[in-house]
């Protein structure tokens, strides 16, 4: 008995040790970024590592005074929120249709939607550039909203669809015999029931959008449309050289809000990510 209990205790220690090291490994970039972001510039580029940093808000002050960080932040938030809104408006009815109605080619359509994620973005970069130029949308937030929405639409649709497929048919039949129209059923029964899935899909779309670089770089050319991710690139050139601490700090700032959201909804998130995989 006693030895068994000791063994179980040891197992637990080992388990925590392994999980702890893995967590630390994953967190190293974050810690590193924070540590670089809060050091003076001179301390970063020394050949010998300095383990105990001198705390400095140089980078913080610089990004706000020398750069239009407020605009970047605003552009990021607007483009991301707008794109997620577009995605949800389009994806919820699409997912409902794909999960509930039977019609010729339903599975194919589902696959076509997903296949938009399968090609390398660079392939369509040039056509997209000309498309937006002809529409006069270059260097606007509107273009960013549209392109982020387009990139994420497939994933958002598929996640919401997999949640909707889990809703028993009975629920809809009940609502229909109770006198509800299709739209009512979607709005009052289905959407509340798949809310966790919708939130999950929205967060995943946000993560993709905040990290989007290629198309943003292509579309944005001034602070009108520069987002956080492209702004980072600005710190690498120019007469000041590479401004490592500012890069690290901005990267960290871009990371924090998403991190907070993910922690808040992580239960739903893991379910949303695995469900599609299991159900196909």
């Amino acid at each position: 008995m006693a030895s068994q209990r000791r063994k179980r205790g040891q197992n637990r220690v080992v388990r925590y040790l392994i999980l702890g090291s893995w967590a630390l490994f994953c967190l190293v970039p974050v810690i590193w970024f924070l540590s670089i972001g809060l050091r003076p510039r001179t301390e970063i580029i020394t050949p010998q590592p300095i383990y105990v940093p001198t705390l400095s808000l140089d980078a913080w002050n610089m990004i706000w005074s020398d750069w239009p960080m407020g605009s970047y932040l605003r552009n990021s938030v607007l483009a991301i929120v707008g794109s997620v809104a577009i995605d949800l408006v389009l994806a919820i009815p699409a997912a409902y249709s794909l999960s509930r109605y039977t019609y010729r080619g339903r599975e194919d359509i589902g696959f076509y939607i997903l296949s938009t994620r399968m090609m390398a973005p660079a392939i369509v970069a040039i056509p997209i550039f000309f498309l937006f130029r002809n529409m006069g949308l270059l260097d606007t937030i509107w273009a960013l909203m549209l392109i982020y929405a387009a990139i994420n639409l497939s994933v958002v649709t598929w996640i919401i669809r997999s949640y909707m497929m889990d809703i028993p048919q009975e629920l809809e039949d009940a609502a229909r015999t109770d006198g509800a129209s299709d739209l009512r059923i979607l709005w009052e029964i289905i959407i509340p029931a798949v809310l966790p899935g919708i939130i999950t899909a929205a967060v995943i779309a946000m993560i993709f959008a905040i990290n989007e670089f290629l198309f943003t770089l292509l579309i944005a050319s001034t602070k009108n449309a520069y987002t956080m991710s492209v702004a980072l690139a600005n710190f690498t050139g120019g007469s000041d050289g590479v401004i490592y601490n500012a890069i690290a700090l901005v990267a960290f700032l871009a990371f924090v809000p998403i991190f907070v959201v993910v922690v808040a909804i992580q239960k739903h998130l893991s379910r949303g990510l695995t469900m599609g995989a299991v159900k196909g």
Binding site: L171, T177, G179, I189, P192
Partner: peptide
């Protein structure tokens, strides 16, 4: 929805996001 029949299902099919009161009221509202 226009046939005026009411159905009871094996899995109950109660609307999970609504209270019992709202569930019972749903057909009246519709």
């Amino acid at each position: 929805r226009d046939r005026d029949v009411a159905m009871v299902f094996q899995g109950y099919a109660l609307y999970p996001n609504m209270t019992i009161y709202e569930n019972i009221r749903f057909p009246l509202r519709m």
